[in-house]
Design a binder for these strands. Structure first.
Lengths: 329, 329
DNA sequence: CTGAAAGCGCTTACAG
DNA sequence: CTGAAAGCGCTTACAG
């Protein structure tokens, strides 16, 4: 591979001047500029990124940490991010934590070892106290998941509201025995969503049945399992609010297989509004999360933070969430 | 950030020795090794990747070029790749060509500018003659899409066979007026699949109706459009072989909306065997593509090629394809 | 408008 | 087992 030195030698100019041409500096004699250009062309010269990185202390690379790329929700999120990153001249490193704390921590090391200029956390497996130390190495923002204790910019949807409107919708449809499969655990996002569920229940004077609460699951298979657990109950719920459309789809599919009619015997609300929600039969009533907007906004913010080097500060940005009614309720 | 020099200063040793400790070289006095280790710990030292890259001429990064990350097919492929890459200590750069030749070419530049050690092409927008020049900068392999004229390792499925068994299945079900939406154009993969379609038709003594051929489309919306174009025909086909499950899903959804019964009025065969195929109603008869196997094998091969620096050579590897029969036929 | 020199932070022969 | 020195390929003050 040709280096800047060889280009300099070929043109009889200094490496400095060649570098200036490469970087479009002003104050280069137009003739010499042209000379350098053709020499680069002839030698097939291309700047070595590693050298530029070392010298310039930036990588033009951003890592995005997700927890499961096969989840279409993340697919759409990453798609939007990749688009903005490409426009702005950044590479995207895809980091899949697979819901494991350790993998997430390892990915955070990328910032420390200067392999990326910034990190977008679209999933959050660790607590803020473990993530915080990394912020001194570069910008970290979260998108989708969040942690109120965290001092970092966040692009989030109003999950409490989402939990509320989904539940309220079921209540309005006359349901009282409502199961909840969004998870109630350590993750703030799911906790907030659960708060919304509880608020709607309380407002309607309904009590939350502990047996109807299922931990946070992710895929179709989980949905199937949840259906069977409900089906085995003596006192079955008449409706379920699932943590994602895939889970909802699993519930619906299995319900149909066991001749449990949706929505008559079991109403189902999903979350995300993935394409899937509109495709299966009956269509899934769900909460629309603006995945594209989230991804776009997060990447724009990240690039801005990298370029302006901490001069810009962002806070929590709240994005809208809305109920999409289909045939499953 | 602490550097190797600072660690050296703190321990009274040379940077060379510190480097040896970092890289687990033998022949370092155990006591000194320990000394260095604690000094690194105390300083929060971490090696700078850019420097290592420049010095070592490798990046431990691999790019994968896909054409549409929101397609679950690519989601699963990338998922399998990421897993192997992480195990082997490589980062994955996600490159989305969005079906555009230019974007793909830009992504190939990553190899030239030493930003990645190798590239996996899971999508192929350009011709081999345009890609070939990049092979001198590092290993390039294809996975999924392919080009027989190309002199690169390829992990491919037997598309001709896939086209054949899908079509044969429809013929066995008694169909004669069979539409084909897999594309017939410049891409070899789709051309081969189309060959399989034609072979099955020919064997059964059926003629291919030009009006029933639709260019290669990708998403649900495309499926809906195709349905309407068929629906508007005087002499409608009774079956369609779609290029992907998403397209098939779009066809089916719209068919149901217009009271066209599947499979009675219109039988539908998809491709890929995505989770979706099993979820919608009726389930989609489809051709299973071993996405996980493809991704795993491709990444293993890539890492092997990078590590053994062209000493290893691979050829085309053919992976099995099989018909999954569900209710849509 | 141009160039010599220093340095980004490592690793690797080489010599001991 | 250890260290001094060179060099990976750039860019950026600095001086002219």
């Amino acid at each position: 591979m040709a280096t800047i030195k060889e280009v300099a030698a070929k043109t009889g100019l200094s490496p400095t001047t060649v570098s200036r041409v490469i970087n479009n500096h002003p104050y280069v004699d137009p003739k010499k500029r042209k000379l350098v250009m053709t020499a680069m062309e002839e030698l097939g010269y291309v700047p070595n990124s590693s050298a530029r990185r070392l010298r310039g202390q930036r990588t033009n690379t951003i890592a995005v940490i997700i927890s499961r790329i096969v989840n279409p929700f993340f697919g759409h999120l990453v798609d939007a991010m990749e688009k903005i990153a490409a426009e702005r001249g950044y590479q995207l490193i895809l980091c899949d934590s697979r819901l494991e704390k350790d993998r997430e921590m390892q990915h955070l090391e990328l910032l420390k070892t200067k392999q990326v200029d910034g990190i977008i956390l679209a999933s959050l497996q660790n607590r803020w106290k473990d993530i915080e130390p990394y912020t001194r190495y570069g910008p970290i923002i979260s998108c989708n998941e969040y942690d109120s204790a965290a001092d970092m910019p966040m692009i989030v949807c109003d999950q409490e509201y989402g939990g509320y409107i989904g539940t309220k919708h079921l209540i309005d449809r006359g349901h009282e025995k409502i199961a909840y499969a969004g998870g109630t655990d350590r993750i703030e996002l799911t906790r907030d969503r659960f708060s919304g569920f509880k608020r709607a229940m309380a407002e309607a004077g309904l009590t939350v049945n502990e047996d109807y609460l299922f931990p946070s699951f992710y895929g179709i298979e989980d949905g199937k399992n949840i259906f069977h657990r409900m089906y085995a109950m003596e006192n079955r719920p008449t409706a379920i609010f699932a943590g994602g459309d895939e889970v909802a789809a699993g519930v619906i599919q299995e319900a149909k297989r066991f001749h449990c009619r949706v929505p008559d015997d079991l109403a189902v609300v999903g979350f995300d509004n993935q394409p899937l929600a509109d495709l299966i039969d009956p269509g899934i009533t769900t909460i629309d999360q603006p995945m594209k907007l989230m991804g776009t906004r997060a990447m724009e913010m990240m690039v801005d933070m990298i370029r302006h080097n901490r001069d810009v500060t962002y806070k929590k940005e709240l994005l809208p969430l809305q109920l999409i009614v289909r045939e499953s309720t």
